[in-house]
Amino acid sequence: MLRGLAAMVSRAEPLAALEAKIAATTVDDTRLTTVPFLAQVGLRLDPDGPAAARLAAVLGSDLPGPNRAVAAGAHRVLWLGPDEWLVVAADGQEDSLVASLASAVGEDGGVIDLSSNRTGLELSGAFAREVLATCCTIDFHPRVFGPGQCVQTLIQKAGVLIDQRTDDTYLLLVRPSFAAYVAEWLLDGMLGLQADFSTR
């Protein structure tokens, strides 16, 4: 009963103050978009334990291995650690996800609603990889990284979970309090690339 009320509540976007700057900054087709209010559910279990098979049935896919993300039905499952995953779905799905995952996991792990724990930033376009190279040490070259892979790393000093969705689209999940800092780095990287691009 309590959870059903959530949809009625007025919610605030963590990056509301930066929205105009984000919208105004592009490099050719490359842009940043805020993705607030994603349903996110933390999953803790032993992948070799009894819950894994029950979960696979509910999720519609096996739990992904290291640095992998799988899309299954209406949600995406991201690997966070050897016994930790994050299930990401559209806004509003959190309660049903928690319920179905919890019933599959039972007493053999933990299921936790983390929908407010991170907010989304989508970086897309032909320059997306170069934007990331201005502030992130991970090698996103298509030879070593591509759609279906995810990585927990740093944008400078801020922790971030990066999920590559398509050839040139990355979803960055960031703690709300670090989101402005991360956005500022990405926007500044875009500014530099924009200057390069306009003189090409």
Binding site: P66, N67, G81, T137, I138, V151, T153, L154
Partner: peptide
Amino acid sequence: PYCGPRDEPE
């Protein structure tokens, strides 16, 4: 041993 090679600040 779980995620592969990464830079020291991580």
